[in-house]
Amino acid sequence: MRNFLSVEELTALLAQGAPVRLIDVRWRLDRPDGRADYLAGHIPGAVYVPLDTELSTHGRADEGRHPLPSTATLQEAARRWGVREGDVVVAYDDAKGISAARAWWLLRQAGVDVRVLDGGLGAWTAAGHALTTDDVTTEQGDVVLEEIGADALTIDEAAAFPASGVLLDVRAPERYRGETEPLDPVAGHIPGALNLPTLRHLDADGTILDPDSIRATIAELGVTAGTPVAAYCGSGVTAAHTAMVLAEAGVDAKVFPGSWSQWSNTSGRPVAIGSEPG
């Protein structure tokens, strides 16, 4: 099953009256509350989804910035969005799919048929489609979610992962090398991790590259058919995007949701710096 949906495919589904539930997952590190952007203009019928409160939870610093929500919390949220059994959920954002991928990663684990709009809001408007400014509320959904968490690594599992597979650090190279760290108390990367920024998988307009190109990129890091793969980032959001892209190329990847925000806030965890993994 494809994980991305083009604007043309989405408009065809809507024209057919297919059971589609659109969710607007606008979120950025510098502007985590995307509601104002949503109200300024969104795809007609889309419900706003706050990533910080419905696609994650909050606790101690050593749990990371975006720990997983409970299955019950996610189910309550999905029902608020109006998701019903059998619906196709289409998530989008205005950040090259980075935040929408968090919804994809969680809902996929929960057994929901979920896709991400390729190119996001920009692709929608570039195709000449209109936006609306209403605050969409829907009838309560009835979806029943499966238990989530099986695709997530604990901090100990992430530490051990390079011994048996490829652990990808998908942050910017300068953060991987430890030259800068704008958010967390320590700079560097998890020992053994290889750097593969998730934006390498996208065109300039934010649409995904073809699967062969993605497979060629990850092959440079030793990822071939059957290689265990996991990804982490700053707080488990961007890593979900890498997992989604790899799934499109036929590669299943785990995600360490605590990511660097948990690792760097946990006493005693070793830190590597420089361009080499060790």
Rank of each mutant, 00 (worst) to 15 (best):
T57R: 15
S267A: 14
W104D: 01
A172V: 07
V143T: 07
W105T: 08
R108F: 09
A230D: 01
S56Q: 06
E54W: 14
D24V: 04
A95S: 13
V89I: 01
H201N: 15
T217A: 11
A123N: 02
L183V: 14
A204R: 10
A100H: 09
D203P: 09
I23A: 07
T224V: 15
P191C: 08
N195T: 05
V114Y: 03
R65L: 01
G128I: 08
L221G: 02
D134L: 07
V116Y: 06
D203M: 13
R269H: 00
R177H: 00
R269I: 04
L74A: 04
L22G: 13
Q262E: 15
G17H: 10
E157K: 10
A127M: 14
T207Y: 02
P69V: 13
S99N: 03
R21I: 05
E8Y: 01
A272L: 05
T53Y: 07
D212H: 12
A231G: 09
V223Q: 02
A15D: 11
L10C: 03
V83Y: 01
E181Q: 07
V88I: 15
R60G: 08
D203Q: 15
V90N: 12
G268P: 06
V25Q: 04
A12Y: 02
D252H: 12
Y38F: 14
A160P: 14
T224L: 07
A46C: 05
A230V: 08
G250S: 01
S56G: 13
A15L: 00
M1K: 11
V237R: 01
P211K: 00
T57P: 11
A163M: 13
P67A: 08
Q75L: 08
E54K: 13
G97Y: 04
L202P: 08
I148Q: 10
Q16T: 09
R115D: 00
I273R: 09
W104R: 08
L145G: 09
W105C: 02
G188M: 01
L199R: 14
T198Q: 15
L167I: 12
A103G: 06
Q140H: 10
A126V: 00
G86Q: 01
L14V: 02
